[in-house]
């Protein structure tokens, strides 16, 4: 054990915890009696029917194998592969998120450059920011009138705030010295913005983007449960209505995995723009 690196030991421990956790889960589910062992009375009262209990991990794994081996099948509106469902969710998240970034980053830049604008917009931002994005849903459905666009709007509205606030904060906090370097080199406003302020504020801006994508992925599940039709959130709710808990657990895990992938993509971006002073 002494030769193993810190990472190897941690990985070993993780695998161990996973195995122990799965075994405990498996053991905690009471086995269903086989039909032959039932008494006449039990059979008549329906005790032998497969009960909708929490499925053991072995079933979930079997489900995962089944789903992941054919993720893109499409057998009608209520029966699509997990890949298609996740694809819909990612499409909505990215559309709403990119629209939010297109608004929040330039706007945050302007707010950050001007103390007056910063103070003037602050009360609006502070009131709008804590609103649960789903609270916008009825209004969005009424005004936009389209459930698909409403879901994207909800993503837009929830991901705009961290990006806006972090961009403004990052831009306002750019060191005076660096701005003075730009000034003494006679850089114009646009050039200063792109060659000095943007790289200086980039770590803060990307942190905001990372928070936003996390929130957007949290919100899409709830939004899709409301609007229905497609998406991973709808899939979870639909499988609950079907009382297919195996699929519910499997899709919960998939939500976690996709969320982690989205976050680590921004983690990579963050590492690229971070600088040491």
């Amino acid at each position: 054990m002494g030769q193993l690196s810190l990472n190897q030991r941690a990985a070993l421990l993780s695998v161990l915890m996973l195995i122990v956790g799965l075994l405990l889960w498996e053991a905690a589910i009471p086995a269903q009696k086989a039909v032959e062992e039932l008494t006449e009375y039990e059979r008549l009262t329906g005790a032998g029917e497969a009960k909708a209990g929490v499925p053991p991990p072995s079933q979930v794994l079997a489900k995962a194998w089944e789903q992941l081996s054919d993720p893109f099948y499409d057998a009608g509106p209520n029966d699509k592969g997990i890949g298609i469902q996740i694809g819909y969710s990612i499409y909505r998240v990215l559309t709403g998120y990119l629209l939010a970034a297109l608004v929040a980053i330039p706007f945050g830049f302007l707010i950050g450059m001007s103390q007056v604008a910063c103070k003037a917009f602050n009360p609006f931002i502070q009131v709008l920011r804590p609103i649960s994005p789903l609270a916008w849903m009825p209004l969005a459905l009424f005004i936009i009138g389209d459930s698909e666009a409403s879901a994207i709007f909800v993503i837009f509205i929830c991901s705009i705030w961290p990006m806006l606030i972090n961009t403004a904060f990052g831009v306002a906090g750019v060191r005076e010295d660096w701005v003075n370097v730009a000034r003494t080199h006679e850089l114009g406003a646009i050039k200063t913005a792109f060659t000095v302020i943007l790289p200086a504020a980039a770590p803060t801006i990307v942190t905001g983007m990372r928070i936003s994508i996390g929130i957007a992925w949290l919100v899409i599940v709830a939004a899709e449960m409301l609007v229905g039709g497609t998406g991973i959130g709808y899939y979870v709710w639909n499988e609950w209505n079907n009382l297919d808990l195996t699929s519910v657990i499997f899709s919960i895990l998939m939500i976690g995995v996709v969320g982690m992938l989205l976050d680590s993509a921004f983690g990579l971006l963050q590492r690229r723009v971070t600088y040491a002073e």
Partner: peptide, 17 residues
């Protein structure tokens, strides 16, 4: 400010990125 007048600041003012 102008490029005709170069400045060396006490805290170096290099762009760290």
């Amino acid at each position: 400010p102008s490029l005709d007048r170069g400045v060396v600041f006490q805290n170096y003012s290099l762009l760290p990125w």
